[in-house]
Amino acid sequence: NRRVIAMPSVRKWAREKGVDIRLVQGTGKNGRVLKEDIDAFLAG
């Protein structure tokens, strides 16, 4: 159960899209999950 680094707005975006943010690979600094990462995860 790893800790995910993400801005609150990104966490909210993931929740709205029904995405478990822990499954998303972050591409930002220090592995931070970005809004673009959520979109890419949804795109496959």
Rank of each mutant, 00 (worst) to 15 (best):
Gly31Arg: 06
Arg3Leu: 13
Leu23Gln: 13
Gly26Val: 02
Thr27Ser: 13
Ala40Tyr: 09
Ser9Gln: 10
Arg3Met: 09
Arg11Tyr: 12
Glu16Arg: 12
Asp39Asn: 12
Arg15Ala: 13
Lys29Phe: 12
Pro8Trp: 12
Gly26Thr: 03
Gly31Ile: 01
Glu16Val: 13
Arg2Phe: 09
Asp20Gln: 05
Gly18His: 08
Glu16Asn: 09
Gln25Val: 14
Leu42Thr: 07
Arg2Gly: 11
Leu34Asp: 04
Phe41Ile: 06
Glu36Met: 13
Asp20Gly: 02
Arg32Thr: 07
Gly44Val: 15
Lys35Ala: 06
Met7Thr: 15
Gly31Ser: 05
Asn30Cys: 13
Glu36Ser: 14
Pro8Gln: 10
Ala40Trp: 09
Glu16Cys: 15
Ser9Asp: 12
Asp39Ser: 08
Gly18Asn: 10
Ile38Leu: 05
Glu36His: 13
Ile21Ser: 01
Ile38Cys: 03
Lys29Ile: 11
Leu34Ser: 07
Leu34Glu: 07
Phe41Leu: 07
Ile5Phe: 11
Trp13Ser: 06
Arg22Cys: 13
Lys12Leu: 09
Ala6Phe: 04
Ile38Lys: 01
Trp13Asn: 05
Leu23Pro: 00
Asp20Leu: 05
Gly44Gln: 15
Thr27Gly: 04
Ile38Arg: 00
Arg32Val: 06
Gln25Pro: 13
Ile5Trp: 08
Arg2Pro: 10
Val33Pro: 00
Phe41Met: 06
Gln25Phe: 14
Asn30Tyr: 14
Asn30Arg: 12
Gly18Ala: 06
Arg11Trp: 15
Ala6Met: 04
Ala14His: 01
Ile38Phe: 00
Leu23His: 10
Gly31Trp: 04
Ala14Asp: 00
Arg11Gly: 03
Arg32Leu: 08
Gly31Lys: 06
Leu42Asp: 05
Gly31Ala: 05
Arg32His: 07
Arg3Ser: 09
Val24Thr: 02
Ala14Val: 02
Val4Ser: 05
Leu42Glu: 05
Gly18Asp: 07
Gly44Ile: 14
Asp39Leu: 09
Gln25Lys: 14
Gly31Val: 01
Asn1Met: 10
Gly18Pro: 01
Val10Leu: 04
Ile5Ser: 07
Leu23Asn: 09
Lys17Gln: 13
Ala14Ile: 01
Lys17Thr: 08
Asn1Ile: 12
Ala40Val: 10
Val4Asp: 04
Gln25Thr: 14
Phe41Asp: 02
Ile38Tyr: 00
Asn30Glu: 09
Val4Leu: 08
Gly18Ser: 06
Ala40Gly: 08
Val24Arg: 01
Ala6Asn: 03
Phe41Arg: 04
Gln25Ala: 12
Gly44Lys: 15
Lys29Tyr: 12
Pro8Ala: 14
Arg11Asn: 03
Arg3Gly: 10
Val24Ser: 00
Leu42Val: 14
Ile38Trp: 01
Met7Ile: 10
Arg11Phe: 13
Arg15Pro: 03
Arg15Ile: 14
Thr27Tyr: 03
Lys17Glu: 04
Ser9Thr: 09
Met7Asp: 15
Glu16Ile: 13
Trp13Pro: 03
Leu42Asn: 05
Val10Arg: 01
Arg15Trp: 14
Lys29Asp: 09
Gly28Trp: 01
Ile5Glu: 07
Leu23Trp: 10
Ile21Ala: 02
Val10Thr: 05
Thr27Trp: 03
Trp13Ile: 12
Lys17Trp: 11
Asn30Lys: 11
Asp20Val: 04
Lys17Ile: 08
Asp37Gly: 00
Leu42Ala: 11
Ile5Asp: 07
Arg2Gln: 11
Gly44Phe: 15
Leu34Ile: 09
Gly26Asp: 00
Asn1Gln: 13
Val4Asn: 05
Ala14Met: 02
Met7Arg: 15
Arg32Gly: 05
Ile38Pro: 00
Asp20Lys: 04
Val24Lys: 01
Gly26Met: 00
